[in-house]
Amino acid sequence: MSTALAPARTGSDERLTGFAGEPLDQRRYRRMRFIRRFEETLLQLFEEGALNGTTHACIGQEADAVAVIEHLAEGDHIFSNHRCHGHYLAHSGDALGLLAEIMGKEAGVCRGMGGSQHICAPGFKSNGVQGGIVPNAAGIALANQLSGNDAVSVVFIGDGTLGEGVVYETLNMAALWKLPLLVVCEDNRWAQSTPIAANLAGDMAARFAAFGVPVREVDSTDVEELSAIAGEEVGLVRAGAGPRVLLIHTYRLCHHSKSDDERPEREIADRWLVEPLLVHGQRLDEADRRRIDDEVETALGEVVATARALP
């Protein structure tokens, strides 16, 4: 199976997922911008009252989704969590299906049954309960191992998920059975409203290392740096190296779900100075950046209009 960076899915809007032949730095910027603006648009639609239920935006963490998922191929599987929009959009580019789902419409990816946290599409699933998706992803990895293919099963968790016992049950089993599983832990420093200092004892990486599972740790919001590392990790898992952990220290710039943010303003402001779009955007010409911003804006505007008009 090729480990070349995955192209945009056929059928997805190239203005959101990237044009064929587009330079890689532009495509990465475009995909992150797409996720960012999708999330911001959602929050706006919530304020308008156009959406039902709740949502968990990944603003500030877009680089993780784009960097990891561009290394995945047909046959690989992603299991994501409550904060799954970025992962799903990086995987599928399906803005309309996701928005329609969150709007509770029949045209949604799960016909309005799942909503924001419960998404299913080929090669992708998410669930809103913390931790339980980890053994599910390990089961998919076991299926791949038994089938003798070289597909990779990826599961995205957060620092808060490390409070769940089943994560450790699964790490143990995955290590014993050398399952082709990549755990991507996005440490965004806050579990809902609880800071990591009140949530997590000891050393985060050591928790994985205790099971003999290699941990690749990176503190970065730079999609280029993350992608280089993610590519190596995905490649190692695909080559049969057994389970591995990619531990990304990052930051959630938005509130946990909708309007529940009591974090220090100064801390958040500092992190806006190193947010992924800013970090990577500097690599692009001003003109290219603006053009991409405009294309994403236009395409998302069309998605919102189409979704609103759906029955």
Partner: peptide, 19 residues
């Protein structure tokens, strides 16, 4: 291992993958 949550959870993943 003695891990009922993972036994069920890994079973779920196998089932989702067609096993």
């Amino acid at each position: 291992p003695i891990s009922e949550g993972a036994i069920a959870g890994v079973s779920a993943g196998l089932a989702l993958a067609g096993y």
